[in-house]
Design a protein around this nucleic acid. Structure first.
Lengths: 190, 190, 190, 190
DNA sequence: GATGAATGAGGCTTCATTCAT
DNA sequence: GATGAATGAAGCCTCATTCAT
């Protein structure tokens, strides 16, 4: 029996990629990622066929991670605004707790090296959240529009909020609350 | 592209860079940009010391271009919401009329190759707009926060709106209007 | 390919190497050969110290195989031309029956990774055949030259003949016969 | 005006490739070829898009070179055997005068990296020679077969002859003559 | 001033080989 | 003994930048 492929190494590479890409962009070299992971240059390619596959898997990983952060503890039975606030808070917390993940995710979201197929798979599993979004839309001002739009609006407003939070950490909580209220005003029924 | 008149080479390079980067990302080679500009590979470096300078100048150029689009015809005396709507509309129009500029701007905005100094210079000159933003803040729900935050909120909401417009061109105008109302609800006094 | 019985691994590797090299050239990776043999990547190196040794052993194996095909049933007592024809036919049959062996042999014959020592060992054991060659030389037009030359002439003429046969299968037998007559005319007494 | 692309450099690369491939096979690295040519690694790719293109151009070059050697001074009006002998001699001389060209040509002829299209282009321009081959076929023993076959036969017999000449330089001329007689006996009318 | 030929550093990827299991 | 995970050297190729013309 050969040495088993340690799941650790795969994770180490993905984590190293997150950090390295966060600070150097998608142009970060595979060599630098491997080095950051404490792994030989060639080893990276045992786990990922090529750089594009690494990028796609990283997207999937981060999306999963984000989904977990947002889904766990979701108060499915609570009032609409409470649920919305949970979505907002859990997303912002995820982003602020791991700025590298957030930055890297931002780059991947914009890159055309992430396949459409992977993107769509990434949408799955946000069930409670999607349902909530749908309700916000249905009962809100934007009822004529696809929930996707509201969802994206939330993400981009949260992004802006996080940037402000990162910039002025002392006012972080104020931004977080204000950002949510802005979103809620934008989307919910008058 | 034909060989541009001598004095226009700089402009030709910037324009070619806009197009080329829009479709190939910031990794677009200087050679490909020069070629698209109808200019020799080496000539590019007579106008820009290196690629980073080109990128920074391009940022400045696009920001100027955007400023011009948003500033000209600005109804400085109109009611607040009218002015806000003008800001929104002119920004969205700028982005939808020249998708290459918008895409390239998006890449530059996120890249750390654009110096902070240049970014800040780019803020200048949006006078009427800044004043309007200030008023929106002062008179609105977000009065405790810096106008910069509201400004960024507008930009990111408009960005999301433009993405939706580009995705479903038939509903474009509906998105544009809905996006603005969302922003206005988010920022203005109840 | 299923996992071969333990004792057969060596053979499985050699056979897999024949097939793989025939279609991918000597650059075929050891990993691909191992895989084709249904054997672990590392196992290959338990049977062959390194790739060069594999190549040399493969040369030896194919040469042995070819010798067997040409030697068995050799009509040692028949007339000279009959024996010559048997040499020709058995060589051509060997090559046409197993194109992979022929192609791989062609690559190995030309490669400098096969040691001169191995090449020479490969000559041995063609006893009846060598004797026949000697007679062709002695009694023929080329009597002043070493039998090795005539032997090589036969091989290369047969090679050319096989290429033509492979190219136009319908005329295969015509080529086979014509090729031999050409050789016989070239080498035998007027 | 930029520095003109010196035809010399292209030639230097092709020549270096000839030498390097002759001794290291088609696996010779582009770096080693560039170095042998006294040229930067990257420069090679200004003259040839990739290694395959280099190989194809090299094939063309060598074929042209060979054609020139065989065509110039061709005694178009002479007797058939005289013309055949000229073909034989000029081909053998070409091969013996430049063993590197011969070895490299041999590798290229066998490689599937040389495109069929290039191969066919290479056939062109051997007019006097093709005509002569046709006559040898028409008037000879192999009249039922395509001239291509006789042509290939000549080449392979000459190849074998050259190998012998190279092996025993002192008997070189004897081999050259004997080889031709063998060919003539094989192909011409009794 | 304009050009594009020249280049080496660096990027991605493959591969023969080693060795822990 | 068998395996395949691990690896770094080496291969092909790209590219920003320099500089001869």
């Amino acid at each position: 029996m050969a040495r088993p492929k340690t799941g650790d190494k795969r994770s180490a590479i993905l984590q190293a990629a997150t950090v390295t890409i966060a600070s150097n962009g998608l142009g970060a070299s595979t060599a630098s990622i491997a080095k950051a992971a404490g792994v030989g240059e060639g080893s990276l390619f045992r786990y990922f066929a090529d750089k594009d596959e690494l990028l796609n898997e990283l997207y999937r990983e981060l999306k999963n991670n984000m989904r977990h952060a947002m889904t766990s503890g979701f108060p499915a039975e609570a009032a609409l605004k409470v649920r919305a606030r949970h979505i907002w808070d859990s997303y912002v917390s995820w982003g602020m707790d791991s700025p590298d993940k957030r930055k890297t995710m931002a780059q991947l979201s914009v890159s055309d090296r992430v396949l459409e197929r992977i993107r769509q798979e990434g949408q799955a599993g946000f069930d409670g959240i999607s349902a909530t979004m749908q309700q916000i839309v249905d009962r809100g001002k934007l009822c004529a529009l696809p929930p996707r739009f509201v969802n994206d609006l939330l993400l981009s407003m949260a992004e802006t909020t996080m940037a402000a939070m990162a910039n002025e950490p002392r006012k972080a909580e104020r931004y977080r609350a204000a950002g949510f209220e802005a979103f809620w005003s934008a989307a919910a029924k008058k």
